[in-house]
Amino acid sequence: MYAEWSPGASLADRVACLWKQDCAEEGTQIVVPDACVDLIWGPEGPHVAGPDTGPVPVRMRAGDVYRGIRFRPGALGGLLGVPAGELRDERVSFADLGLPADLTLEALAERLRKSAAPDPAAPAIAAALRSGSSVREVAWDLGLSERHLHRRAVAAFGYSPKTLQRIVRFQRALSLARSGVPLATVAAESGYTDQAHLSHEVRRLSGVPMSGLLVAA
């Protein structure tokens, strides 16, 4: 069983949610890209799951327990001492990043206060790319060169602007589909050329068709 809840006011600007998963039976769960970084306590020990660019199958056994803290896209800041780009598609132990295994929410909040703040442009970058603006348009609107935008996006999100756009568009489509919106409408409202384009991108990013993601949810 999976559940998530609010992190509380002291962390809400940086943390999307706290979550837990208790596995009742053996199986494989596919983790899909969401532009987030998670701190995870699980059977393999505490580790950081960096921003993914493709599906990650996780083999779970009956009785396995997972707990996590999910950061908002671009909100990691200097907490781990490395830019998000160095964590892309990686799973790194707490020990390798200088985090205590028994990290509490209070200690996390204190570490966040003492670490470098996230790029203040990160929310605007993500929102503009999610709305369908081109990389050139986003750079122009923020007063940046495309090269500078690329560097800031990789540091904050772990992705180039084009990859970030694909992933936030995919997540918007997934949210709409899970709410019951017809796939043709999902494609149009998420910025895909047509439903075939949506289907192609969903398979590239998740490894399964949209129907598979909806059943899993």
Results as ranks from 00 to 15, higher is better:
138 V>G: 01
102 D>E: 14
139 A>F: 06
98 G>W: 07
162 K>M: 06
113 R>D: 08
170 F>A: 07
117 A>T: 09
151 R>C: 00
127 A>C: 01
108 L>N: 02
170 F>T: 06
175 S>V: 08
180 G>P: 07
124 A>E: 13
166 R>C: 07
134 S>K: 09
93 S>T: 15
182 P>N: 06
141 D>V: 07
114 K>R: 15
106 E>L: 09
97 L>P: 08
98 G>M: 05
122 A>Y: 02
151 R>M: 06
139 A>P: 08
163 T>S: 12
166 R>I: 02
91 R>S: 12
136 R>M: 09
169 R>K: 15
165 Q>L: 02
155 A>H: 13
186 V>R: 10
100 P>D: 12
159 Y>C: 07
159 Y>Q: 05
157 F>C: 13
164 L>G: 02
149 L>V: 10
146 E>R: 15
92 V>R: 08
163 T>Y: 01
118 P>S: 09
150 H>K: 11
99 L>I: 02
181 V>C: 08
154 V>Q: 10
119 D>L: 02
145 S>R: 11
124 A>K: 11
107 A>S: 12
113 R>E: 10
135 V>E: 15
150 H>N: 14
134 S>L: 05
165 Q>W: 04
123 P>E: 10
136 R>F: 06
142 L>T: 11
134 S>G: 14
167 I>Y: 08
180 G>D: 11
148 H>S: 13
137 E>P: 01
100 P>H: 11
127 A>T: 05
152 R>K: 08
147 R>Q: 10
104 T>E: 03
133 S>E: 11
122 A>V: 04
92 V>H: 00
175 S>L: 09
147 R>A: 13
109 A>E: 11
185 T>M: 12
155 A>N: 14
110 E>V: 02
130 R>H: 12
92 V>N: 01
140 W>Y: 14
128 A>M: 15
182 P>F: 04
175 S>N: 10
150 H>M: 10
101 A>Y: 06
164 L>I: 02
133 S>V: 00
160 S>I: 00
176 L>T: 04
162 K>S: 13
95 A>H: 07
178 R>C: 08
150 H>Y: 14
115 S>R: 05
130 R>D: 15
119 D>A: 03
158 G>Y: 08
117 A>N: 06
104 T>C: 03
142 L>Q: 13
99 L>H: 03
112 L>R: 11
164 L>T: 02
155 A>S: 15
136 R>H: 09
96 D>H: 09
135 V>D: 13
168 V>L: 14
118 P>E: 12
183 L>E: 15
133 S>T: 01
104 T>G: 08
167 I>M: 07
153 A>I: 04
126 A>W: 00
155 A>G: 13
149 L>D: 10
